[in-house]
């Protein structure tokens, strides 16, 4: 018996993580490459900050050419920072299971004894943190270079809006990841298509109030639309008059969206996983 215990191949597990402990460890393990691994490739960090900055500069100069009021410069800086989150959700959340499938990792995820939901949550937590660093950099750059002045109306509401926006946004990303699992070659194009139209519909660079009411209402299903509208109202005091809805209402809607997307992602993931296994799409790699 002693011999069996001293042999690492035959020794029983000293501690087997199951239940919430396994769930939590999976989240940490999946978020690790996002938080630590991505920072190791410094050129990625540079490009991921540089590209939103170029967009910010372009739209700021357009507003300057139009002699727009100064708060619009601030809107662009905020929009540019939030761009980083949308691109992260699109390319590193929604498309992620598709990439994993292409790389051959997806079947390993499926056969591993952990929850796919924990994997998605880990991706979300890690992505959110890593992107936050980039968004803060873009905001600092824009603020310093273009002399943007913030007048924060309520720190508490601002914190609530940002947190709820992030939860709802990454919840939506988790939901979309399930849908992307079914895509083949079209996944790349679909993700590519969801850039400019979303920048337009969500009012990344202008107040959403200027879109027709029903268009703005429809776009409000995307958490960033109401999140940015509320943040504008809370960060630029002059923006209250061009808010789409009042901040309190937007906070309630964002809370509803957060719950909706996370619950929906759980059910959709289970359904799509079953469908993908049944139709043999887990290991399919169409290029």
């Amino acid at each position: 018996m002693d011999n069996l215990n001293s042999n690492p191949l035959t020794r029983p597990y000293s501690r087997k993580d199951i239940g919430w402990r396994l769930f939590l460890k999976t989240i940490i393990a999946r978020s690790y490459p996002r938080i630590v691994g991505q920072q190791r490739e410094l050129s990625w960090v540079l490009f991921e900050i540089l590209l939103p900055m170029f967009a910010v500069c372009t739209y700021v100069f357009v507003y300057r050419a139009l002699n727009a009021p100064e708060e619009y410069i601030g809107f662009v800086v905020m929009g540019g920072a939030m761009t980083a989150f949308w691109l992260n959700v699109l390319w590193s959340m929604s498309s992620q299971l598709y990439w994993e499938k292409q790389q051959g990792n997806l079947q390993l995820y499926i056969i591993a004894p952990n929850s796919m939901m924990a994997i998605l949550l880990g991706m979300a937590v890690g992505g959110m943190f890593a992107t936050l660093l980039r968004a803060v950099t873009v905001t600092i750059f824009g603020t310093l270079v273009f002399s943007v002045k913030f007048e924060i109306v309520s720190y508490l509401q601002l914190f609530a809006v940002f947190t709820l926006t992030m939860i709802a946004l990454y919840g939506m990303g988790m939901m979309m990841a399930s849908a992307f699992l079914l895509f083949g070659r079209e996944a790349w194009h679909i993700a590519n298509l969801a850039q400019e139209p979303i920048f337009l519909a969500s009012g990344f660079f202008f107040p959403i109030k200027f879109l027709p009411f029903w268009v703005a209402a429809g776009a409000s299903l995307l958490p960033l639309t109401l999140g940015m509208d509320a943040m504008r109202q809370l960060v630029f005091s002059s923006a209250t008059s061009i808010g789409f809805l009042d901040v309190a209402t937007e906070i309630w809607i964002l809370a509803g969206l957060a719950v909706l997307f996370i619950v929906a992602s759980k059910y959709l993931l289970a359904y799509v996983e079953k469908l993908a296994v049944r139709e043999g799409r887990i290991t399919e790699s169409r290029r």
Partner: peptide
């Protein structure tokens, strides 16, 4: 879908500028 993809993306990019212009002017 290819036609939609080829049209929607550039038109959305243009529409952002059109709305920015329209709002200010």
């Amino acid at each position: 879908l290819f036609a939609v993809y080829s049209i929607v993306k550039p038109l959305s990019g243009a529409a952002i500028l059109v709305i920015m212009y329209g709002v200010i002017t």
